[in-house]
Design a protein around this nucleic acid. Sequence first.
DNA 1: ACTTTACCTCAACCTATCTTTAGGTTTTAG
DNA 2: CTAAAACCTAAAGATAGGTTGAGGTAAAGT
Lengths: 151, 151
Amino acid sequence: MEKKPLQDANLAVGYVAKRSDVNVSTLHFYETKGLIRSWRNDGNQRRYKPDVLRRIAVIKAAQKMGVTLEEIKLTLDTLPQSRTPNKNDWARLSTQWQAQLDEKIAYMQRLRARVEGCIGCGCLSMSSCPLYNPNDILGEAHSGAVLLEKD
Amino acid sequence: MEKKPLQDANLAVGYVAKRSDVNVSTLHFYETKGLIRSWRNDGNQRRYKPDVLRRIAVIKAAQKMGVTLEEIKLTLDTLPQSRTPNKNDWARLSTQWQAQLDEKIAYMQRLRARVEGCIGCGCLSMSSCPLYNPNDILGEAHSGAVLLEKD
DNA sequence: ACTTTACCTCAACCTATCTTTAGGTTTTAG
DNA sequence: CTAAAACCTAAAGATAGGTTGAGGTAAAGT
C-alpha cells in the first residue's frame, strides 16, 4: 500500500522524492541551493511540509521553460514566507516565466525564418550570406539560449 | 590593415577566429572534436581552407537552434569529403536542423499553453493540477526526446 | 637584428545541474 | 531483537562546451 503523508503533514525525503519523481540527492541539492526547505526530526532526518511538492513541480516546470535554478530561486524568494502560498502567488510566478518563454519562442521563430531564408539564398558569398554575418537579428535581444535536454 | 586570405587560400587560425568571431581556443577545441580540419605549415601552425568559415557559421547556427556539438558533428560528417560542399549540401543540413527546431518550437508552445491553463486552474489540488501531473502533454509526441525528464 | 605578436601543446579550470560513492546512523518490518 | 531499508554528510565525478595559464616556438614589423 502506498505510504501516505501523516495528518500532521511532515513528509520524509524518500516520499517527496518518489512523489515528485526526482532523486533524493536532487532534493538535498535543491536544499543547499535554497530552493526548498526542511526541518529535522530527532534522528536528524529531513521532514517537509506538503507544499514542497508544489514547489518542486513549479521548479521543474520553470526548468522546462528554460529558466535557470538561480532565476527560479530569485522568483521563489518573492513568495510570502509567513503563510503557505496560494493560487495567486503561484499564478504570479507563472506569468513571469511565461513572458520569458514567449521571448524564447519568438527568438526561435526568428531563427527559423532566417535559416529558411538561408536554404534558398546564394549562400556561397561570404559578404552577403546571413549565415556568415549573423549579427543583426540573432545576436541581440535574446535572453539566454534555450537548452532543451534529451535523456 | 586587415589581413586578407591569400589567393591560395590557406588561412591562419587567428584570421579564422577573428572572421568567425570565436576564440582561437574554440577552434582548437572544435578540431579535437572533429568538427573542423586543418593542416600544418612548416612551423607547425594550423592552416585552413576558406570553407572552414562556412563550417563554423553553420556550427554556430545549429547551436543556436539547440543542436549539440555531437549531433552537429554527425551531420557534418555526411558532407562530401571529396569536394568542397556546395549550396545543396548545406541546404540539406539546414533542412534537417530546421525540423528539430520546429519540434522545439512546438514543444514550447504546448508548454506555454499548459502553463497558461495552470494560471487559471484550481491548482491547489495535487490530484488534478497539471503542474503536479505533467506526464500527458509534455512527455509525449517528442520523437525520441524526453525533455528534461528522467526515467 | 630585435621585438612584438601570433602560434604551439598540455593540463587545469569554469559553470550548471546534478549523481555517485563511501562510511556511518536511524527507522521500520518481521 | 535483528536485519533491511531509509537516511545522513562530505567529497568526488559526470557532462557540455568551452576558457585560462604556463612555458616555449614561429612569424612579422621596423
